[in-house]
Simulated scan of single mutants.
Amino acid sequence: MATSIHETVLVGICDGAIDKKKNTSYCTNKIGDRPDLLPIISLQCPICSLCQRGLSHVVQVYCPLATSPYHRTINVFACTNPQCSGKSESWIVLRSQCLDDDIKGRQDNKTKTCRESAMSRTDWCDEADDWGMDEEEQENVAESGERVRNDSVSEETDVSSKLQGLSIDGGLDQQSALQPPHAHVFQSFYISVMEETDLDGFHDTDHENELLREYEEREGVMVGEIRSCGSGEAHEEYEKATVKHGDEVFTGFMKKISLCPEQVLRYSWAGSPLFITEQPFNVSEMVPFCGHCGSPRVFEFQLMPALVSLLCSAGTNSDTPLEFGTVLVYTCRNSCWKSGSTVPVEEFIFVQPDPDQKLFK
């Protein structure tokens, strides 16, 4: 499905391993490790509906909506059992929310709220030293202010200014209950975020063109080069050809991510997903309405193939059998939340296998 020119797409990129000595919080965007729960949330380890094994934490995304007063975190879990690989039923996505008052009511001398001051995309990508502050620095961080309320009809998220990676005590006793001993704990990495439109010039186009040439040789298709123009915009010139594996959707997917093939996440609340294989003909009917308020669900973000190579067990060099093409996450359009709730809301997740997983190894 093509992305509308009016949609804002945020791209998540791996931004380095997380030091084990650094604590993370519910407002840290990260790969792996254990989830960091909002202060009022309680959660036992999610279980695979296919094999009944405990699920491993894959990613955590802090994504408050500009029109909402809630802190909002989404956690994605998956089963690493090879027999469950690539099946949507072996994945779970959970949405958690709470208000500033809920956090302040549970603060103590070891707990700090997330800083809400706006941060430019340049700070995200080029000045990433704020990741994992030490304790002395944390004490200088101001408490969260009230979220901006936007009366506009636009429901665009405020991710680029609100995603932060400051430390917080997540509660180790509670955390240990989230990951049973037999479940994989993936090595943890920070996720840095920038707008897709800002990718031009962010990467070395010579390097990207080399990757594209290698892809052309493998697949027997002419993709063309990424060419920088005087206006600062990059234009892609494509020539139609028959792909060896006959999957034009996959070829289009590769073209779309060619400016940043290492992206691990694409975020576009109420936007259009980027399918890696032919989308189901009844995709609109496939996504169920919210089971709590009955509202339609909208696309929010997807996990990308480059994430697969980062999902290795912490403390080992061995890969896990978790493989996928792309993982699509749909959430309640109203982001409904019952006051006083302590249990995350399960949303809808759809997994598409990769037609050529070896390209990302």
Rank of each mutant, 00 (worst) to 15 (best):
Y26K: 07
S96Y: 05
A78F: 05
Q60W: 06
E236N: 10
D198G: 07
Y215T: 15
W91R: 01
A78K: 00
C98W: 01
M1T: 15
N109Q: 12
M222G: 02
V343D: 11
V193E: 07
D169R: 03
E347K: 00
V76C: 05
I191G: 00
S160Q: 12
K104Q: 10
E300V: 11
E347I: 00
E89P: 02
Q263V: 06
G252V: 02
T157M: 09
G32Y: 07
A118R: 14
K338G: 04
H182E: 15
H71D: 09
V193F: 14
P64F: 04
A2G: 13
V223K: 01
V153M: 04
R72T: 12
A241E: 10
H245P: 00
F360Q: 02
E210Q: 15
G340Y: 05
E262L: 07
D108K: 03
V11W: 03
S88W: 02
E233W: 03
D158T: 13
G220V: 04
E127F: 13
L265D: 00
D100Q: 05
C51V: 00
S284P: 01
M222P: 11
D126R: 12
F202V: 15
P181Q: 08
K244H: 05
S42M: 10
D151I: 08
S117H: 07
Y26L: 05
A270E: 14
Y62P: 08
Q357Y: 09
G291N: 12
H184T: 15
R333K: 13
C45I: 02
E210K: 12
E216V: 01
H184W: 11
S341D: 06
T3M: 08
K162G: 09
I92M: 09
E137T: 13
